[in-house]
């Protein structure tokens, strides 16, 4: 069964839709890249999946359940890392982890074990009692990442994760994603860093003007564009040009 399923999803902020008739699924253990230009509808798609926007038409299911059917179950099935870190100015790093653990019903022991592993992986042990105002952009991003991985959900939704992270941070994130994938979790990741997406994603969804332009493995995409040996960069540029000519 698909972990995430979008069926004919149309939606946006106002009555004029930003995304139209989206159809795609993510299977268990899959890492799927959501690729598109600025304004293509990546973030809007993600907002619909996490439930801050409600689709005007169509359905979104996580593990076969829509948000309406069982809100608690739906919400505890995924964790989300936003593009811009959203932290509580009044909570320290340690308290962010505690709060997340409480919200997702982890017992205190599990929370502490997982937290200490993540803290050393992301080299943040010494900053446990710091407030976010003393964190750099990359550190703030790391707090979000640690909170997301602390939950250990079925599905990770990650919006533009590599901006602001240092190379070690990027590597730690990729390692974590690989590990979770091996354990059977799925990841939906939107990004502009195409070389990384090409290297790590099992499948790619190309979004353009709010529609799915193409999706599949790299080989599927090469076939669809009739460009053997092309990189994702080549395909991406080809797609935007094709669109301009229409």
């Amino acid at each position: 069964m698909a972990v995430l399923e979008l069926i004919n999803v149309t939606g946006g902020y106002t009555r004029k839709p930003v995304i139209r008739d989206l159809n795609f699924t993510i299977g268990q253990g899959e890492l799927v890249g959501l690729i598109g230009l600025n304004g293509a509808g990546k973030s809007t798609t993600i907002k619909h999946i996490i439930g801050t926007l409600i689709p005007q038409q169509g359905e979104i299911k996580i593990n076969g359940i829509t948000l309406k059917e069982d809100i608690d179950n739906y919400r505890s099935s995924f964790s989300y890392i936003p593009e811009t870190p959203v932290l509580y100015d009044e909570l320290t790093l340690k308290e962010h982890l505690e709060l997340t653990g409480m919200a997702y019903g982890l017992d205190e022991k599990t929370m502490k074990e997982r937290a200490s592993r993540l803290l050393s992986e992301f080299r943040m042990e010494k900053r446990l009692n710091w407030f976010p105002s003393h964190f750099s952009k990359g550190m703030r991003q790391k707090v979000m990442i640690m909170c997301a991985f602390l939950v250990n959900p079925h599905l990770y939704i990650i919006d533009e994760p590599f901006v602001g992270l240092d190379p070690l941070g990027i590597q730690s994130l990729l390692d974590q994603m690989d590990e979770k994938k091996r354990e059977g979790a799925s990841v939906l990741m939107s990004t502009h860093i195409l070389s990384t997406a090409e290297k790590h994603c099992d499948r790619i969804i190309l979004l353009h003007d709010g529609r799915v332009r193409a999706q599949g493995t790299m080989n599927d995409l090469r076939r669809a564009f009739n460009m053997p040996n092309a990189t994702l960069d080549d395909l991406y540029i080809a797609m935007t040009k094709e669109q301009d000519n229409e």
């Binding site: 996490i50 439930g51 801050t52 608690d72 505890s76 989300y80 509580y88 919200a103 997702y104």
Partner: peptide
């Protein structure tokens, strides 16, 4: 503003 607790699986 959007806060992370709006996504929490709690009542």
């Amino acid at each position: 503003e959007f806060r992370m607790d709006m996504l929490f699986p709690v009542d």
